[in-house]
């Protein structure tokens, strides 16, 4: 870990301004991913702006009947909130499926969205990685590489990493919106659908945030009801990232929404695939995973995704 200077501002706009002004600045919230990466010198901030003094740790009700979640609300607090449990159970299920009690006590809402891939080559600084060092190559795509956990769709020739979050998959299904403040003090809203970027030729660019821009809230629209489930598939029963996860909201008339985790560089969902839900898991996945480019090692994720949804739909 490189040496860095540290400050803990008290105002979100001031924090954003400082982030844009100080060379090599980085926001620090829960720290559960950033510090991990700093120890390995994958992240090397010169200046750390600790946002834990900004407030932003409340969940309030919006005029449209939804909820506005402060970026510093911890995963534990969010999953346990009575309104979330009652009206957005998918979100509670997804959060509880991720990480551990200890990590969820520190991990924050905004930080969870910003966590970086767990691709083992991204994590090993001896290996080429276009996300870590643009232009260095992708070890995961080289002959003999270990790619079982990596992405099957939305990937590129430069990067096949996945986004590791469970929470974000649920939020994508719930049509969440990210609220930010920019270094000039402006606020803006970014639908979660547009928040994470596909890698293309620039896998180092992961989100729509501008330099210094700070997430302040994540907003959930009014509850959509239905049966909400999150099925996370992994090798061991807990404390593991998803091989595949499926977030499902299913209405009484058979319509609904489906989002996938563990398969793509962002939570994976499409309106066209949602529209196929009444036609069953196979119909959904043939649309949702159309154009998938798996490796030999992770092609099973396509079958697995379909069978997982079939289980949730109780298809036989």
């Amino acid at each position: 870990m490189r040496a860095f200077s540290y400050e803990k501002p008290a105002d979100p706009a001031a924090a954003a301004a400082r982030a844009a002004e100080v060379e090599g600045a980085k926001f620090l919230a829960g720290g559960t991913n950033l510090l991990d990466l700093m120890k390995l010198e994958i992240e090397t901030p010169l200046h750390v702006i600790d946002v834990n003094g900004l407030g932003l740790d409340e969940i309030t009700e919006t005029e449209e009947g939804g909820l506005r979640i402060g970026t510093l609300v911890t995963n534990t607090a969010l999953s346990a909130d009575a309104r979330i449990r009652r009206d957005y159970p998918l979100l509670t299920r997804a959060i509880a499926a991720g990480a551990t009690g200890q990590l969820r006590n520190k991990a924050t809402t905004g930080g969870n969205l910003l966590q970086r891939t767990r691709c083992p080559y991204f994590y090993d600084t001896n290996q080429p990685c276009n996300k870590r060092v643009p232009g260095s190559g992708c070890a995961a795509l080289s002959e003999g590489a270990f790619s079982r956990q990596l992405g099957v769709i939305g990937t590129s020739d430069a990067c096949i990493a996945t986004h590791p979050s469970d929470m974000a998959v649920a939020m994508r299904a719930l049509d969440a919106v990210v609220e930010t403040v920019t270094p000039t003090g402006m606020t803006r809203e970014i639908p979660l659908e547009e928040f994470h970027l596909l890698p293309g030729d620039t896998p180092e660019q992961e989100t729509a945030l501008m330099p210094g821009e700070l997430i302040t809230h994540v907003r959930l629209p009014a509850p959509v009801g239905g049966v909400q489930e999150y099925h996370k598939v992994r090798d061991r029963a807990s404390y593991a990232f998803a091989l595949v996860s499926v977030a499902l909201i299913r209405q009484a008339d058979g319509s609904g929404r489906v989002a996938l985790g563990g398969v793509a560089p962002k939570p994976w969902r499409s309106d066209a695939a949602d529209a196929e839900l009444p036609n069953g898991a196979s119909a959904v996945m043939s649309v949702l995973l159309d154009g998938a480019r798996p490796t030999e090692e992770n092609a099973f994720k396509i079958t697995l995704a379909e069978r997982t949804l079939a289980a949730m739909l109780k298809e036989s």
């Binding site: 400050e7 010169l46 060092v133």
Partner: peptide, 20 residues
């Protein structure tokens, strides 16, 4: 030949802006 440091982010010549 590979340089051990090559995979990590390049060392910046800049120093932290304040006390460490």
């Amino acid at each position: 030949s590979a340089v051990n440091r090559g995979g990590a982010a390049a060392q910046s010549s800049a120093a932290p802006a304040g006390p460490e």
